[in-house]
Design a protein around this nucleic acid. Structure first.
Lengths: 259, 259
DNA sequence: TTCTGGTGCTCTGCATGCAATTGATGCCAA
DNA sequence: TTGGCATCAATTGCATGCAGAGCACCAGAA
């Protein structure tokens, strides 16, 4: 019948009974909706909730052991992050990540990180530079040892630290919002080790530019690095479920001229 | 009984009785929470809900004529936009816009618009360029006539159009999120006409760069333009409403957001 | 007077009930 | 068989009830 509308993960992927509880109250006593956001985000990023899966409020609330209200709030917040698509009076779905969306995503991340690197070049403190150096050497160690997971963890840490060192909150928040989707793309890529050597070298160059406080170079190098990562990921993207019949360039919202 | 919980600012600022209804269902039948977001955003931007004002759910729901549930959702969404500060188990407040936050804000907007201009330089369609030209000439006409309001409307339209022409959804959304706060800053500035001539000239140069499809120049010019606007605004910022009773210098909140 | 512990009230956060909308299914007619 | 229509079940969206957290005020002691 209609392959498009069927949630790709219906039978195996939906959280039917497998109780997906959340860790109890740790840290600064946040509300249930906050923890629900975190949990759902993790489930989406790690693929337990596959792209296109229907997110039925009652099912999620049952699975998380909470009521519908915090689930609703969490879904709205995840929609802002672009992880969930809301449709009026219909079950929200886990957002699809089409190749062109991935391209835009990394384009945007590159733009933001470039700006952050430029700002960081003049604002970064010696202690933070030292921390970057430490991360870099640790990362290279993991690279040499072939340990993929810790390598990626440090990679992310480095990028996040550079963004933080820009000292610009709106940019940092924008970056964080895009992060989850980028992580999804990375996990879907076939060969995560692709471009590994190159990437480490680029990181070294970026660090050097920051040490030299060369804003232009730091920004350019970081933007190129992110861009390369994006295209590499794009090339290695495992097709989740190619859905025909969707227009590829629908997100150029140029408003219909009212003047 | 209100004196205690009153917003740090004013007595007459709170939406007590003045019925703040929303226009009925027009267009694509959106939910109440969605309309509540719009209405509250407008109220905050226009200053009816002043910075620091307590946003009590029951009061807002009564004023808007809806129940607490959609109001709660709306407040969470506005918190994402940075217009509202949420505090656990306490009334949310309209976020303050401190000078350093305004500086960061325009820094971020400049970064995003620069990237968008660079992308737009190669992607903008002739029809869109034509539309930009028309906006520019209309804007100049309003400038010549001294009509401030339509001038600003067209100004925003131009910026939005350039961002749209970049064809990058994440960047466009990030830009939209920052827009409301920038608008608040603009409204609080003392002399909105400051830098008027200069601004128009800069717009002309940006348009020329886009017509020449010169990405570097377009990006640089637009970023500088936004930066100049930011510093001009910053210089002309009216102090929100410093009242004698509250701490006048307690805003040294340089948050330690090192990761 | 000033500090400390108690007390009450308000407001948030979560749960749940109810109506409206939507997509689907089955029946009837052409 | 196929197209159209009415009915039905599922699910969202909104309203409301209820318990707990937090703050102010107040009383009492040092």
């Amino acid at each position: 019948m209609d392959p498009v509308r069927r949630p790709p993960g219906r039978s195996p992927g939906r959280p039917r009974k497998p109780v997906l509880l959340e860790p109890a109250g740790l840290g600064p006593r946040r509300g249930l909706h906050d923890r629900a956001v975190e949990r759902l985000r993790a489930l989406i990023v790690e693929g337990t909730l596959p792209a296109g899966a229907a997110l039925v409020e009652t099912e999620l609330s049952a699975a998380l052991g909470i009521s519908r209200t915090p689930v609703r709030e969490a879904l709205k917040l995840l929609a802002v992050e672009g992880l969930v698509e809301l449709r009026p009076n219909r079950s929200p779905r886990v957002a699809e990540l089409r190749p062109d969306a991935v391209a835009e995503l990394f384009e945007a991340i590159a733009a933001i990180e470039r700006a952050c690197a430029e700002l960081a070049a003049s604002r970064i403190a010696p202690a933070e530079l030292e921390r970057l150096r430490r991360y870099q050497s640790e990362m290279e160690a993991h690279h040499a040892a072939g340990d993929l997971a810790p390598y990626f963890a440090l990679n992310q840490r480095i990028h996040a630290l550079i963004v933080a060192c820009a000292g610009n909150r709106p940019l940092r928040e924008a970056h964080e919002v895009l992060h989850a989707r980028a992580e999804i793309a990375r996990r879907r890529a076939l060969d995560s080790r692709a471009r590994w050597d190159e990437s480490v070298a680029e990181h070294r160059a970026i660090l050097a530019a920051l040490e030299a406080r060369d804003a232009g170079s730091a920004g350019r190098l970081l933007a190129d690095h992110v861009g390369h990562t994006g295209t590499a990921l794009l090339a290695g993207l495992a097709k989740p479920d190619t859905e025909p019949g969707t227009e590829p360039d629908a997100d150029r919202h140029v408003e219909p001229d009212a003047a």
